[in-house]
Simulated scan of single mutants.
Amino acid sequence: MAESTLWWLLGGALVVLELFTGSFYLLMLALGAAAGALAAHLGWSPTGQLVAAALIGSAAVVGLHLNKRRHPGDPSVRSLRSVNLDVGETIQVDAWQSDGTASVKYRGAQWTVIRAPGTPPEPGLYKVSELIGNRLMVAKA
């Protein structure tokens, strides 16, 4: 069996594995395998093929990682007002407990409130920014 065929089979296996796992990084590694196959078609040595596959695959993985870090994903569905009508509502927090939570009466029931990252634990008015399970995440109003 030709070396290029092995590279193409490896690339195909990586694509199939990506379809099962949903990890886009496996597609980047499949690009590396395709580069190895093309290097084999060009008559490169096995070492050259491996280096080509490693360089292209690694560069694609690093590029994808940097792109994902630069462009954050969509906001959580739990923080969309169109999904949860509590988002954007104002509540009064009288005191915070030592564990970083508070208990407030909201819509006729007792709710546990947690602070959004960077929100100081001070009494006052807060806006609901997200609903996490049965807890309200709030930020300073």
Rank of each mutant, 00 (worst) to 15 (best):
M1T: 09
A2Q: 14
A2Y: 13
S4Y: 11
S4N: 08
T5V: 14
T5H: 08
W7E: 04
W7Q: 05
W8R: 01
W8V: 04
L9D: 01
L10N: 01
L10T: 11
L10C: 11
G11L: 07
G12K: 11
A13C: 14
V15E: 09
V15D: 05
V15F: 07
L17N: 10
E18H: 10
L19Y: 08
F20T: 15
T21A: 10
T21G: 07
G22S: 11
G22Q: 12
F24Y: 15
F24R: 11
F24D: 13
Y25P: 01
L26D: 06
M28D: 05
L31Y: 09
G32S: 07
G32C: 12
A33Q: 07
A34L: 15
A35D: 02
A35V: 00
G36P: 01
A37W: 03
L38K: 09
A40V: 02
H41F: 12
L42A: 15
G43N: 06
S45D: 13
T47C: 09
T47E: 06
T47H: 08
Q49C: 08
L50Q: 10
L50W: 12
L50D: 02
L50V: 12
L50M: 14
L50T: 14
A52V: 07
A52H: 00
A53R: 00
A53I: 03
L55H: 07
G57Q: 07
G57R: 04
S58M: 12
A59R: 11
A60R: 04
V61Y: 00
V62G: 03
L64T: 13
L64R: 14
H65P: 00
L66I: 06
N67M: 12
K68D: 09
R69D: 04
R70G: 03
R70S: 12
H71I: 09
H71S: 02
H71Y: 10
P72C: 12
P72S: 05
P72H: 07
G73R: 13
S76W: 06
R78W: 08
R78C: 04
R78N: 14
R81C: 02
S82M: 10
S82Q: 10
V83S: 07
N84W: 05
G88F: 03
E89L: 04
D94C: 03
D94Q: 12
A95H: 14
D99H: 13
G100D: 04
G100K: 05
A102N: 04
V104H: 05
K105S: 15
Y106S: 04
R107I: 05
R107H: 14
G108H: 11
G108L: 11
A109L: 10
V113E: 00
I114A: 05
R115G: 08
P117I: 02
G118P: 02
P120G: 00
P123Q: 05
G124E: 09
L125R: 14
L125S: 08
Y126V: 01
K127D: 13
K127Q: 14
V128L: 02
V128M: 06
V128A: 04
S129V: 13
L131S: 01
I132S: 12
I132V: 14
G133V: 12
R135M: 07
M137P: 00
M137C: 12
M137W: 00
V138R: 01
V138W: 00
A139F: 01
A139H: 07
A139I: 01
K140H: 02
K140F: 00
